[in-house]
């Protein structure tokens, strides 16, 4: 902080720990968080494909891991993050096109993103296990 800012008596804007973030801001930071998580998840994707190239034994090791309770938990988290990043990413593309900037439209797209994530995750796992 510069000397000028320190000596100023002007009020400070609320710190992140005090300011209650609007829902759209939570979804925005979640977009980055899921992006980081999905990037880490590409290690799993690469493991799967490389294991197949190494042969049936290596593929079996991966299959055993991913079908274990811990593996399924990671896969569930990965799918949830993927669908969230997909739905929220579509919203960002529409924003980039200059659409849906009003508060009402943003509240609608908040609901679309959350509902889309939950519904797509549920559909994917129901189809996989029914």
């Amino acid at each position: 902080m510069t000397q000028a800012a320190k000596s100023s008596a002007r009020p400070l804007s609320p710190h992140l720990q005090i300011y209650r973030l609007p829902l759209a801001a939570w979804l925005s930071i979640s977009h980055r968080a899921t992006g980081i998580g999905l990037t880490a998840g590409t290690l799993l994707l690469t493991w799967w494909l490389a294991a197949a190239a190494y042969g049936p034994d290596a593929y079996g090791v991966f299959s055993d891991f991913i079908s274990s309770p811990f593996g399924l938990l990671i896969l569930f988290g990965f799918s949830f993050a993927l669908f969230f990043h997909l739905c929220n990413g579509i919203r960002h593309l529409l924003w980039d096109a200059g659409k849906n900037f009003s508060i009402e439209a943003t509240k609608r797209s908040n609901a679309f993103v959350i509902a889309g994530t939950v519904v797509l995750t549920a559909i994917a796992w129901l189809i996989a296990y029914l």
């Binding site: 990037t39 590409t42 290690l43 994707l45 690469t46 494909l49 490389a50 197949a52 190239a53």
Partner: peptide, 15 residues
């Protein structure tokens, strides 16, 4: 990222 991309694509091609 590019190393993982290369490894995964080469793995697909090998199979």
């Amino acid at each position: 990222c590019y190393a993982l991309a290369a490894l995964s694509i080469v793995s697909v091609l090998i199979v």
